[in-house]
Simulated assay, not measured.
Amino acid sequence: MARTPFELKRKSVFVAGHGGMVGSALVRRLASEEANLLTAARSELDLRDQAAVNAWFTANRPQVVFLAAAKVGGILANDLLRAEFLYDNLAISINVIQAAHANGCEKLMFCGSSCIYPRLAAQPLREDSLLTGPLEPTNEPYAIAKIAGVKMVEAYRSQYGDDFISVMPTNLYGSGDNYHPEYSHVVPALIRRFHEAKLSGATNVVVWGTGMPRREFLYVDDLADACIHLMKTYSSPELVNIGSGQDITIADLALAVAAAVGFRGEISFDTSRPDGTPRKLLDVSRLAKTGWQARISLEEGIRLAYQSYLDDINGQQQGMLVCPRGERQGGSSRA
């Protein structure tokens, strides 16, 4: 079962969800590993379709799988789309893990989320706090689906001897993030809001909640590096937290994003909106023992994320071609 160090060189490596923020970061990081990369666009392979996933695995037989595909979103998306967040994420996990097992995959990494931990668990969140208390209600369906994935990895490892492992990233941000005005996570939501306020000359930006909750953030390229490191060096049934080990209040985060964007107006808080979990900081001591730690500071990461956002906007604008009859044809810099 366990083989460490585990080599990626010349192995066929499937990144499930390669078009998303985490998946695209993994693809960038794998470029230096001399692996044979396998990807499948959503139009080619719906990971919720069990028959399609089984057929794809049988045809391609990846030796290594990074399961980074997921339906994700911020507080509003999680709370409004509860059925979709539960069904889609359960289906993806079940189909990919079973297909990897059935087709002799050498190693699989399941990427979960720090929201799997109880809402009021002791801080910082240790891996063994899983299932010790009630979940945060606003993202409970997503958390349950991710917990099921963790338990499925454990079961396949113990029953079949599969070298499958689970990692739990903290809140992520960076290149490839979702900047939807309603369904995005807090960092991209703030970047977009402050940027648009700066352009419009607005003097005030409203941030959801009280600003008091504390959150930990990790730049997505740091996550990808940690995942490659653990894929090579870690093989155990215990899941591993991946984070920076530092947290910040939402109010201070808003100030940091405003500074990076160049917004100089006032910031107010809509206390009628939900705060979510009071604090979410991961205990990363297990990760640290493997010899890895985050490199990109929050200040630098926000700057990089904002530049990526500007690049996306510019790419979208350049992709809009003026047709002979004045019609406009949409284009985007992101696949």
Rank of each mutant, 00 (worst) to 15 (best):
residue 88 D to I: 10
residue 91 A to W: 01
residue 51 A to T: 13
residue 43 S to I: 00
residue 174 G to H: 04
residue 156 Y to H: 15
residue 175 S to I: 12
residue 37 L to E: 09
residue 174 G to C: 05
residue 121 A to E: 12
residue 209 G to W: 14
residue 48 R to S: 13
residue 84 E to A: 13
residue 42 R to H: 14
residue 4 T to Y: 07
residue 18 H to F: 10
residue 309 Y to M: 08
residue 50 Q to D: 11
residue 258 A to F: 11
residue 124 P to W: 01
residue 267 I to T: 15
residue 129 S to Y: 13
residue 251 A to V: 00
residue 220 V to E: 02
residue 45 L to I: 10
residue 144 I to Y: 07
residue 24 S to E: 14
residue 298 L to A: 00
residue 322 V to M: 09
residue 158 S to T: 13
residue 166 S to V: 09
residue 71 K to G: 01
residue 208 W to A: 14
residue 96 V to I: 13
residue 208 W to I: 00
residue 25 A to F: 07
residue 5 P to A: 12
residue 30 L to G: 01
residue 141 P to N: 07
residue 123 Q to A: 00
residue 37 L to S: 08
residue 39 T to V: 15
residue 39 T to Q: 13
residue 131 L to D: 14
residue 113 S to F: 04
residue 53 V to D: 03
residue 7 E to M: 03
residue 321 L to D: 06
residue 299 E to D: 13
residue 315 G to W: 11
residue 241 N to M: 09
residue 66 F to Y: 15
residue 173 Y to H: 10
residue 44 E to H: 08
residue 243 G to F: 02
residue 22 V to G: 08
residue 123 Q to H: 01
residue 259 A to I: 00
residue 332 S to H: 11
residue 65 V to Y: 04
residue 29 R to D: 11
residue 147 I to F: 07
residue 67 L to R: 02
residue 54 N to D: 15
residue 32 S to Y: 07
residue 320 M to N: 05
residue 174 G to S: 05
residue 280 K to T: 06
residue 242 I to K: 01
residue 70 A to N: 09
residue 161 G to A: 03
residue 200 S to E: 10
residue 181 P to Q: 07
residue 64 V to N: 12
residue 136 E to A: 11
residue 223 L to N: 01
residue 257 V to D: 03
residue 62 P to D: 13
residue 309 Y to S: 02
residue 163 D to A: 10
residue 126 R to N: 05
residue 130 L to I: 15
residue 49 D to P: 06
residue 12 S to E: 11
residue 119 R to Y: 04
residue 26 L to H: 08
residue 165 I to N: 11
residue 286 R to I: 10
residue 150 V to S: 05
residue 126 R to D: 03
residue 66 F to T: 08
residue 248 I to S: 00
residue 176 G to N: 11
residue 260 A to W: 05
residue 227 C to S: 12
residue 49 D to N: 15
residue 183 Y to V: 00
residue 110 F to G: 08
residue 204 N to K: 11
residue 303 R to L: 07
residue 284 V to T: 15
residue 192 R to A: 12
residue 314 N to W: 09
residue 187 V to N: 04
residue 299 E to Y: 04
residue 32 S to H: 11
residue 234 Y to K: 04
residue 76 L to C: 01
residue 313 I to E: 10
residue 45 L to Y: 08
residue 105 C to H: 00
residue 62 P to T: 09
residue 310 L to W: 04
residue 68 A to W: 01
residue 143 A to P: 07
residue 321 L to T: 14
residue 228 I to L: 15
residue 42 R to Y: 10
residue 169 P to N: 04
residue 197 A to R: 02
residue 93 S to N: 14
residue 298 L to C: 02
residue 19 G to L: 12
residue 182 E to S: 10
residue 223 L to K: 00
residue 278 P to C: 08
residue 55 A to Q: 14
residue 51 A to K: 15
residue 131 L to H: 11
residue 307 Q to Y: 03
residue 285 S to T: 15
residue 106 E to W: 01
residue 115 C to Y: 02
residue 145 A to L: 08
residue 26 L to R: 02
residue 186 V to M: 13
residue 93 S to V: 06
residue 229 H to P: 09
residue 113 S to P: 05
residue 247 D to N: 12
residue 40 A to R: 04
residue 322 V to P: 00
residue 224 A to Y: 12
residue 136 E to S: 11
residue 152 M to C: 08
residue 103 N to C: 11
residue 100 A to P: 06
